[in-house]
Design a protein around this nucleic acid. Structure first.
Ligand SMILES: [Mn+2]
Ligand SMILES: [Mn+2]
Ligand SMILES: [Zn+2]
Ligand SMILES: [Zn+2]
Lengths: 147, 147
DNA sequence: ATATCTATTGAGAAAGATTATCATTGCTGA
DNA sequence: TCAGCAATGATAATCTTTCTCAATAGATAT
């Protein structure tokens, strides 16, 4: 929705960074594809529909800035490239379900790790500030196939 | 210990793959550094002490084979290269604590995800076969520093 | 409006990890 | 001894990401 695009613009427009047409186009694409986990290349292809002459380096630079500002979250699903999504939960991130057959990525919004994080603190003296949790397996569509 | 090295040799010697001196040297290094999470390059450097003329491609090829045989587990800690460790737990893997200050990686052997995996199955119809869980934060040595 | 200053940009080179290619080597078994 | 084939090492190629640098755009001061 456009309201979210406005909020993101505000987050970017902190004085530290300029709001350029390239950065606007990138934010627009991220808003228009909220539920995907796009790679830099995929974002690049979609931004070029709005701003055909943008350079790939600008995509990478902007993704870095948005990640620093905690507007974006950078992830690794093991396919050899970083993937990004808008930060919508706090302070910790949601979990991902990766289907080993069709490659689909779905989400688990519930955290449910409080108990485990307490254990980690109590037994290892480790202060947890974030986590990355992925489940590998078979999605509802794929679990009944054999291969 | 050497007993473990013998077991690994047996796992490799299934008829599908030959037990070569290069592969023996790689297994030896993996046994001698069980508790580390070495990269291919780090393994390469250590194997060359035992077998100086080995090629880097052989390292990569062998790590692939050992991973296919479930002797090794390939991991990504977000530092731009794959890291490996001997598989010692089953069926799921243990968790890792990554210190954001000193970079140390420690382990949590307890699984404690059964409940969450049940939830994932019940509410998302997703059949879990493995997981990857990393906690980011500050280790016992680093949690009391400010920066 | 003009000059000035600086952040941003695009193109392309470079880096770094991993994979592919290919000729050579070393076993194994007839 | 020879044929067949897996394994190897050197090196090229690939792929994503970062770096470099000259050109540009936008803001500010004059
Ligand atoms: Mn997500
Ligand atoms: Mn480990
Ligand atoms: Zn699926
Ligand atoms: Zn630490």
């Amino acid at each position: 929705m456009d309201s979210d695009y406005g909020k993101l613009l505000d987050k970017l427009d902190t004085g530290k960074y300029k709001v350029t047409r390239q950065r606007e186009a990138i934010l627009q694409v991220l808003c228009d594809h909220k539920d995907e986990h796009m790679s830099a290349e995929e974002i690049y292809d979609r931004v070029r529909e709005l701003y055909p002459d943008i350079g790939l380096a600008t995509i990478y630079r902007t993704l870095d800035i948005l990640t620093d500002l905690h507007i974006l979250h950078r992830m690794d699903f093991g396919d050899g490239r970083a993937r990004y999504e808008l930060v919508q939960d706090k302070p910790h991130h949601h979990h991902h379900l990766i289907c080993l057959r069709c490659g689909s990525i779905s989400e688990v919004k519930d955290d449910l790790l409080y108990q485990l994080e307490e254990t980690v603190d109590r037994e290892h003296g480790f202060l947890v500030v974030d986590h990355r949790l992925q489940f590998l397996g078979y999605c509802a569509n794929c679990r009944d196939f054999d291969s």
